[in-house]
Design a protein around this nucleic acid. Structure first.
Lengths: 214, 214, 214, 214
DNA sequence: CATGAATGAGGCTTCATTCAT
DNA sequence: AATGAATGAAGCCTCATTCAT
């Protein structure tokens, strides 16, 4: 009777195993130079097996990105769940940035991949199902910030702007800084300024969001 | 002896011709799905000829991106050259954003390609020469903003932060918004909010930059 | 001890079930584009099970073709069994064609497959057992016509030719018309002339067979 | 100035070279078990080169079949061109069969391939251009026989039937006999009865076509 | 300089078949 | 006997790059 369930579980595990392998290889070599065989080798499976779990390379890649997004969104929604703890909207935006940065640290290369995913070239080749999954997860991420912002606005702390535009800007700022700083690392192998720059970016952003008058 | 120069000039022209063709095709199809033959066809040349002017596909692509960056930097430096015209630092940041947006409108798809270029996957394959060219051009772009910022800071208008970090943030904000809004267009084909979102982003950014106290 | 027999019977049934499924899928998609998984799905079995009943895809396919041939031959032999009913040899050839056409109508796509089977490419891969089974069944089919023909010849109705050659010609004519008309249907989707053409073909054939003089 | 033409000629030659190689390999191994690499090897070219001349395997195969059909049709039309030479319609049908058989002897394996081509499975994958080319060539082949038949009918020699149906039957009889006798050769490696059987088939067919009365 | 035919390595993917459960 | 996940060989095809003309 548990046989059905065991199968289910094993299937999930196998899927996970592939995704972990894929994540590593994609991280090492980038999307284009990663071959399905590379992934299969890393997963200690045969190439054919990958196709039992993912329709093709693109969808494997997208699934990976969705996974990390999902993790991110969960973390964001958790943040909001633990209502208040005495945090004002301003602190919440701060906390939100901490979550973003945490997730990035936990999975630095994959978050870069999410941007790659964003590139239209990739998006155009995905199945409608995956696209709508991405849309959905994005919506939830946006929602998390919107909620914080509206609370702040209603309390008279934040200026009045279109909430979704602000959410987009927040995400753009975050992802833009990551992408840019990562590429700076390639060009000149200086110290890594990511966290520092991110903190300044958010500080400025929050200042810009707040009403100035006393 | 003018023969030497004519050769030079013709070579430059031919190079330009290829880059224009490449730009168009890359814009239409993205980097990966563009073939050298596509570009050759569009340029009305043979594939072999492309290799007389560019070492390989990656470098052709990078040259393209550098070109648009160069154009952008020239525009930025011009902006600063026409000293003052009575503009305060704040207006100058506004003007700077206008330049960024202008260039984007003039070449919307290519600027997306610049981000692709930023992706580590591409950067890792470039020759040292190109890499340093990119580094140089970036430095100049950064310099343009830094100059404005320092003027503002010294006049007591802007808060005191690391100038280069702020420049990075500005660029990240701009490129992040473009990339994100472009990908939103793919996912749901709504209206295009790029300009609107960019304006809000810069407004908030400038507010965040300014000292608040009277 | 009936247990043994039940097993046998069940095995036969299962085998049949697979063949029915295979027939349908082969008919829909042709031999090459049919996968064993397709067949397993249609039979509501697992791919592995198929191999308990058939050595491989080719032999499953051949078995199928033999089956329909066997059905055909039974029908032909029945026709001859019901001795005379007052039919002369000429009417018998007519009746024979009716049987052929009936079987074709009952299983239109499969009979095409028989021709595919005939194609040397397929035959070369069959096991000796299957090959001799095919030979045997062919011989019986040929025999049916030969019997009719000899009756006619001995009665002075038909001209004197090598009986087996004539049998071959009859079958060739029938299968040739089917194959050709089927392919014409693909090329231009006109009306289907199969029956009409077949009737004319047999009319001419019988005329050619008959002695002309009074 | 002849450079253009030389290119043209070389291109044609190269195409031919590939088709010859393909014909040989297809003949040896059949369509499915022939790989593009096999053909490339036989042609002493690289696999990629094949694709400069043929869109894919199916179309290379179809081109081959069309070629032999074209040759056949030319022979048929020549036959009719050399008007009369005192041949009556009856002798012309005989001569027509000789041509068919000649072509078969000249290219025995390829004509089998034409039948393979006829199989719907293959036809369904061809480009519209090739399909219409096939349609056209078939029409011409049919036309050749129709002309002879009508002459005979108008002279009161042949019975009155739908001419195209008769043409179809003639072709079906010819191709059916070839296909069937070829497959008999596989099953039991007796002597080859092809020519003998074909002659009888045509004799009977012509008898059936002729009016019987004095 | 320009050409463009040729190369050939290598990628993605399919699918007949096997085998541990 | 049945399963069905896993295999892995092999095929088709693409395309950046080269080189003889």
């Amino acid at each position: 009777m548990g046989i059905q369930e065991r199968r289910e579980r094993e299937k999930r595990i196998r899927r996970q195993q592939i995704m972990v392998a894929a994540k590593n290889v994609f991280s090492d070599k980038g999307f284009n130079r990663t071959t399905m065989e590379d992934i299969a080798n890393r997963a200690e499976l045969s190439p054919g097996t990958l196709y039992l779990y993912f329709k093709n390379k693109e969808e494997l890649y997208a699934s990976l990105s969705i996974d990390i997004m999902e993790y991110l969104v969960e973390r964001l929604e958790n943040l909001l769940g633990q209502n208040d703890l005495g945090m004002g909207p301003e602190q919440k935006v701060d906390a939100l940035m901490d979550v973003l940065f945490n997730v990035y640290e936990h999975d630095p290369l994959l978050i870069i991949n999410v941007f790659h995913l964003q590139s239209s070239e990739t998006l155009k080749n995905l199945s409608p199902e995956l696209l709508s999954e991405i849309e959905n997860i994005s919506r939830r991420a946006i929602g998390a910030f919107v909620k914080i912002y509206i609370e702040g606005r209603d309390k008279g702390i934040f200026i009045d702007k279109h909430p979704i535009a602000l959410a987009d800007i927040l995400w753009s700022l975050f992802s833009g800084v990551l992408l840019w700083e990562e590429s700076k690392k390639i060009i000149n192998k200086d110290k890594d300024f990511i966290e520092e720059t991110l903190r300044i970016a958010f500080e400025v952003f929050i200042r810009g969001l707040k009403k100035t008058d006393g």
